[in-house]
C-alpha cells in the first residue's frame, strides 16, 4: 500500500492487522511516535490524520490509504523548530521526553481545534476569550505524562496560545 507521511508518499507491504503506529515505527523507522499503552489511553502515539489528532495505536494502517499522516518528525520547518516545540524547550515541558512527541502533536491539533471554535467539556455557553488553564488542561487530557511535567506543558501552551 501507499502511505502519505509528512507530505511524502511511502510504499509499504503490510499485514492488514498492522496499526498505523507499528507501520510508522517498525516499517518506516519513524520512532518519534511512542507506544505507551497501545490502547488509546496515554496519547504518546498521537499523530495528525488529515489534520485531526488521532491515537495511531487505534488506527489500522490499511485504512489510511489516501489520507495524510503528520508525525513529530515532519513538524519542524526549514527555519527551525515549530512554535510548540520551541515553547516546550523554553518552558521545560518535559522530563524524560517519552510523552513529548505525542504531547506536541496533540497540542498542534488542539490549537487548530480551538482556532475553529470547537467547544470543550469545560467551555460554557459563551466562548472564553482565550485558552484558559482549565481549557488547556481539558483539551490536553488525552495525553498523560508519567513524569508529571504538566506545569511546564501548561506554561508552554499558554505561551504559544497567547502569541497566536
Amino acid at each position: 500500500m501507499q502511505l502519505s507521511v509528512n507530505g511524502q508518499s511511502r510504499d509499504l507491504e503490510l499485514d492488514n492487522r498492522t496499526t498505523l503506529l507499528d507501520a510508522l515505527r517498525e516499517h518506516l523507522g519513524l520512532i518519534g511516535s511512542k507506544k505507551g499503552c497501545d490502547h488509546g489511553q496515554c496519547g504518546a502515539c498521537t499523530v495528525l490524520l488529515d489534520g485531526r489528532r488521532t491515537n495511531a495505536c487505534l488506527v489500522l494502517a490499511v485504512t489510511c490509504a489516501g489520507r495524510e499522516v503528520a508525525t513529530i518528525e515532519g513538524l519542524a520547518g526549514p527555519d527551525g523548530l515549530h512554535p510548540v516545540q520551541q515553547a516546550f524547550v523554553e518552558h521545560d515541558g518535559f522530563q524524560c521526553g517519552y510523552c513529548t512527541p505525542g504531547q506536541i502533536m496533540s497540542a498542534v491539533g488542539m490549537l487548530e481545534e480551538f482556532e475553529r471554535g470547537w467547544p470543550s467539556a469545560v467551555t460554557g455557553e459563551v466562548q472564553p476569550a482565550g485558552l484558559t488553564a482549565p481549557e488547556i488542561r481539558e483539551r490536553m487530557s488525552g495525553n498523560l505524562c508519567r513524569c508529571g511535567a504538566y506545569v511546564g506543558i501548561l506554561a508552554a501552551l499558554t505561551d504559544v496560545a497567547s502569541r497566536s
Binding site: T46, R53, M110, R139, S141
Partner: peptide
C-alpha cells in the same frame, strides 16, 4: 463532550 479524550472523540 465527556467521551474519552479529544483523540478518542475525533474517531
Amino acid at each position: 463532550r465527556t467521551v474519552g479524550s479529544p483523540q478518542i472523540r475525533n474517531r
